[in-house]
């Protein structure tokens, strides 16, 4: 039970956050399994949390320093360490008391290289956590996402609609084909397995669902359903409530990038009449990116 009293000067990072629930939401989005390892990378710009599976799926949560009430970074280089994502989220969750915003302080490293969390709301009740860290594994492959050509191949769809579509594709299962075509501008999700299911988003017909669309040629790639599902399976309620959009981009070689936005602002319960998506400052948004490798057993169609 050694104390975690450490000299502030020896710490790489001391930061304070006033909306724990937002951080729980952002990290939960990349928690597609109960037990999952993650790597935290600290820098003067903020914290990046990286999660990976089977060399085919990687997710990154960008917690920019603007999300924190204070962010004091003193390290040389960019410290990286591994923590269990499940433990990190469960610990953060104990700080989040429903109905009121709770402020916490996060420090690294503790005396035994732990990640230290403590509540700073009240002097008479203090919640604290010390999370064991480990030396991170090397990332097995570099998710060098490069554009597929001069025109980006991308579309932005309402997050709720994307999640619903991917949930529905569970029925055919295993492998999902994503087709983008410029004429008529549309996106197709096609599943073949136990049965066939095709979901079309037509750009001009559903501008409220398919918000943006950029594509100058037909492209088609297949992705494993379980990886595609991981990109939306733990979408927090706030993303749906805030009516956010998710951006999907297909890069060189068919690498799929899925980007979500999660609000980490102070709860806006006192302004129920204001559209919270519009009310949030852009700086109080956590960016989440998934990278999904395509299945390779099939010849891609028309990828110039």
């Amino acid at each position: 039970m050694s104390s975690s009293e450490v000299e502030p000067d020896t710490l790489d990072l001391v930061c304070q956050l006033d909306n724990v629930q937002g951080m729980v939401d952002a990290l939960s989005l990349v928690r597609w399994k109960r037990h999952q390892d993650s790597v935290l990378e600290l820098s003067e710009h903020g914290i990046v949390v990286i999660v990976e599976e089977s060399g085919c799926l990687q997710a990154k949560v960008y917690l920019k320093k603007e999300l924190f009430v204070s962010y004091e970074y003193r390290a040389e280089g960019r410290p990286r360490f591994g923590v269990s994502l499940g433990v990190f989220v469960d610990c953060l969750n104990t700080f989040s008391v429903s109905g009121r915003s709770s402020s916490i302080e996060m420090c690294y490293p503790g005396p035994d290289m732990q990640l230290l969390l403590k509540s700073v709301d009240s002097t008479d009740a203090c919640i604290y956590a010390e999370i064991r860290t480990r030396i991170p594994d090397t990332i097995s492959w570099d998710y060098n996402f490069e554009p597929a050509g001069s025109t980006p191949l991308s579309f932005t769809v309402k997050s709720a609609a994307l999640k619903e579509a991917i949930d529905d594709l569970e029925w055919p299962g295993s492998s999902i084909q994503i087709v983008l075509q410029p004429d008529p501008p549309s996106v197709q999700f096609r599943g073949e397995g136990h049965g066939d299911l095709q979901i079309d988003f037509m750009y001009y017909a559903n501008t409220d669902l398919l918000i943006a669309f950029q594509c100058d040629r037909l492209v088609s790639y297949r992705y494993k359903y379980k990886f595609l599902r991981a990109t939306t399976s733990n979408m927090p309620g706030s993303v749906i409530k805030d009516n956010r959009g998710s951006k999907l981009t297909i890069g060189r070689g068919g690498m799929l990038k899925v980007q979500h936005l999660v609000s980490v602002g102070r709860p806006t319960a006192q302004h129920p009449h204001i559209d919270s998506a519009a009310y949030q400052l852009p700086s109080r948004i956590a960016y989440i990116e998934f990278f999904v490798k395509p299945e390779v057993d099939e010849e891609p169609v028309n990828d110039a």
Partner: peptide, 16 residues
């Protein structure tokens, strides 16, 4: 109140 396991120590202290 304190909970200890191999990966984490988590606790809450109420004073006064």
């Amino acid at each position: 109140l304190q909970l200890l396991n191999t990966l984490t120590t988590l606790g809450v202290e109420f004073r006064k």
